[in-house]
Design a protein around this nucleic acid. Structure first.
Lengths: 245, 245
DNA sequence: GGGCTATTTTGACATATATCAAGTCAAACG
DNA sequence: CGTTTGACTTGATATATGTCAAAATAGCCC
């Protein structure tokens, strides 16, 4: 749930994402009125830093939940493993985004998160965040909002996944990647995908061949330029039109 | 998002639902330790009551969000209307359940809720609930949990919808209805569905004919006995097996 | 109860996606 | 530099679901 298809529905998308580079909670604070003192206390929470290499686990299913993590560099995917060993990708998390929210309720992670490339994260101990939010009502209210907005976002996904066809899903995915790139100051049209066709398919509920065909078809139509994982978006408006906006 | 497919994944399902008949927040309080005094204050919130006839709106898209509602009797559906007039059902809410959570973040309802039959609800003014939660830390924490558990639940839906086929979706739906029936002290096998095949299809992302065929097929297989909207579940374990558990 | 209407079921066919199987391409490695 | 390996693309076919149409059924009003 860390990643949302319906982001491309052009509602605000900044939300939980940390737009500034030093991995504090500025984005999270932005819409709430905090005093400089409160702000400082909030930023203190995110001072630690840790490195992960490609394939390393940030957390595994069953791990006790202690903290959220803000991704400073690199990217992660979250997944669940089914009994039969199949992998189901549930989200992609990029630099500047916060990961781990899904475990707040259970205190235990229900999926695993692993680095898709060498990455760095800052820890946000949840206990201290909650504690702080009890002292700062506007922060508390904001956390509520963040969480329930996640709900709305996912509801959006549900609606979309139920009714979207393969190419619409892929269009939504590309627009989502584009927007998240743009938020963090990178190109909105030049994408370097970190994930394989198989992973994209798993995330979108499609087979890798279907994903590949959709890429090819988009290229034929002049919507994008594909070169393996380097994708250039040529016709952003047309892609938007495909997903209904 | 008020309704979840993955409830049938046999995790706990009591959650937000109010199991006792007088529509207080007992279910909501249950897992938290409240003093009798705190409990009393909480129950005060749900004293009001209002009636709705079939087709009445509990709220509409765009309405200002003021309160949650606990359904004392009857049932509601939530939906969004697309530009072209198509209706998309996003949830079914039954007696004993709480509706409206999706609007907390935006302060405005993003979908509309209307009665599927004559119904009664109690209002839970959100401001007072939030205020109270500030004074009662364990309640605050519980609200966090409820909300983020909604997240997990919806994530479950996302996973399911992406990979489940028509009959699996219907099986999940039936099991969900069964469980919710059971929670509120009704039969787990004798279901009186309040919604049409069209609404079920809209909710599950299927066409009504597909829903109907799935019902028929289940009956042929001896899994259920169908008589219009009266459905008897004959082979609960087999249905469970269909959805992976 | 009889007729009316909406709902549900069923059938025939169309389309989208999955499946199976080659074949291509590119990075990694000796 | 050739080989290997994994990822990606493309093609042929199968299967699931959607679409269109008609018949059957149930609920409702008089």
């Amino acid at each position: 749930m860390n990643v949302a298809l319906n982001d491309i529905n052009q509602t605000e998308i900044t939300r939980l994402r940390v737009a500034c580079s030093n991995c504090n909670l500025r984005e999270l604070c932005l819409p709430v009125d905090l005093t400089p003192d409160e702000m400082a206390r909030l930023e203190e929470l995110s001072n630690q830093k840790r490195s992960y290499e490609t394939g390393d686990y940030l957390y595994r299913s069953g791990d006790r939940f202690k903290s959220l993590h803000a991704i400073r560099s690199g990217s992660f995917k979250t997944r669940v493993l089914h009994e039969d060993g199949r992998e189901q990708v549930t989200g992609f998390l990029m630099a500047g985004e916060i990961i781990g929210l899904e475990a707040i309720s259970t205190d235990v992670h229900t999926c695993e998160a692993l680095a898709m490339e060498d990455s760095e994260v800052c820890e946000l101990p949840y206990a201290r965040l909650a504690e702080l939010s009890r002292e700062i009502p506007s922060l508390q209210r904001h956390l509520y909002k963040i969480m329930s907005r996640e709900i709305v976002r996912d509801q959006g996904i549900m609606l979309l996944l139920g009714s979207m066809r393969a190419e619409e899903r892929l269009a939504a995915f590309l627009l989502n990647m584009s927007q998240r790139n743009a938020i963090h100051g990178m190109s909105a049209t030049q994408l370097r995908l970190r994930m394989s066709r198989l992973e994209i398919g798993s995330y979108l509920g499609l087979k890798l061949e279907t994903v590949s065909r959709a890429f090819s078809h988009f290229q034929e139509e002049g919507l994008i330029q594909v070169k393996a994982r380097a994708v250039e978006i040529l016709a952003l408006p047309k892609l938007r039109a495909m997903v209904g906006k």
